[in-house]
Nucleic acid binder design. Structure first.
Lengths: 226, 226
DNA sequence: CAGGTTGCTGAACGTATGTATAGGTGGTGG
DNA sequence: CCACCACCTATACATACGTTCAGCAACCTG
């Protein structure tokens, strides 16, 4: 962690790992090449094999490294007795290549990413359940689904960071862009966007129309006329 | 959009396109192969080239097709004079392969996906600004950022559909799973999760703390002191 | 029926990529 | 000095991939 390392201070093995992090994040696991990673790390392609064996093993090492780094940040912020739900903190204190790799792994779908997702969901669920100071216990029948949706929404902002950054005109992976985004998030979370009537109506539409015995409609939706 | 077509009723060219949609969505643009697409479509690899020339051209055709389909659904729901912000409707009325392709394209990053994202943001912004019945105008200084974040969050649920579905125990791309997710979304949007104190605190922390000596952000909206 | 057009296939080619092998260099211990 | 070992490289090889090409069958069109 700490990201205080200068590129030249690292061993070749570590430089390869860091380069792989970025290449995998940029082009996806399939799109990244050993040769590209080697060039980015300033070594020969053969050295990549020598240290990590296969491309798949290198990817698993990246998974391990990223999971470990994120866990450390998470635990650290837990020990700090944080007030906020933790997303902000965790996001900002995690090094940029790790964020990018994690976001891409989420979309690409690796086992490690899946485990980490579930872990973040569980963590959110605990936080929401436990009632951190300033964080109300959500008003919902299904806290797990609530935490899942909330987690996916927050992570989604990073998975789509390219588009969010473009729309906002600032890279959200920088302090300035992150601030713009976070402020909008707070506005959104602090907002009661939908009127009580519309909420009730939507809830009714979603809970009712699955008639008993009816097979879930494959894609058509309910009649919404009046 | 109908999607009432049976697989065998389609021309080979259309079957190739449909197969490409799914293969691109499943493995990404780089991961999908001409041979794999051909096999899925039940044709020879050479026919893919014959109809679409190159892999890149095939991808562009998929982009066009998907953008067109989503626009049609969007326009249709607009003409219907919808009440809700539209995400639910648009999501549910779009055929599944198109959803999957679009979600993946968002993460992979194609030009068409970028344009569509911006378009959805603009559409959300108008909807929020215009004040649909039941939808309050958001309480924010930066409506564009608000709409951007909201759009990314909603789309993020689909980009991460694999993980959301796993955590929820139901495929959110089915009616039942979608219902579970949508109910949680409504709970979330209807909720004031953060206490006013915490919100104020977070806002203060985000607007103030650009360290002294650090260059002030060029893009700030108003009131920057300290 | 001749000629052409359309839809489609099998085989082949050039290239990029993951991986395996042999070798080379520099420092360290005996 | 020699042997060893960790670190690193150049080369080679097999595979998978995108793409090209020649040709076949069916269907018009005159």
């Amino acid at each position: 962690m700490s990201s205080g390392e200068r590129a030249e201070d690292l061993t070749a093995k570590a430089r390869i790992r860091d380069a792989a992090l970025l290449e995998f994040a940029e082009h996806g696991v399939k799109g990244a090449t050993i040769r590209g990673i080697a060039k980015a790390a300033g070594v020969s392609p053969a050295l990549v094999q020598h240290h990590y064996g296969t491309k798949e093993a290198l990817r698993e090492e990246c998974d391990r490294y990223v999971v470990k780094a994120i866990r450390e940040v998470k635990d650290e912020s837990l020990r700090g007795g944080m007030a906020s739900p933790g997303f902000f903190e965790i996001a900002m204190r995690t090094a940029l290549p790790i964020q990018r790799y994690f976001s891409r792994a989420m979309a690409d779908g690796s086992e490690a990413a899946a485990n980490l997702f579930d872990e973040v969901v569980a963590y959110s669920e605990e936080t929401l359940e436990g009632g951190q100071p300033g964080v109300a216990r959500p008003n919902t029948d299904d806290l797990h689904a609530y935490a899942t949706v909330m987690t996916a929404m927050n992570l989604g902002l990073y998975v789509l960071h390219e588009h969010v950054s473009r729309a906002l005109g600032v890279d959200i992976l920088t302090a300035e862009g992150y601030r713009t985004m976070a402020l909008a998030m707070i506005d959104l979370y602090d907002d009661r966007l939908l009127s009580p009537e519309l909420v009730a109506q939507a809830r009714a539409a979603l809970t009712a129309p699955l008639a008993p015995g009816e097979r879930p409609p494959s894609k058509q939706n309910h009649e919404e006329n009046r």
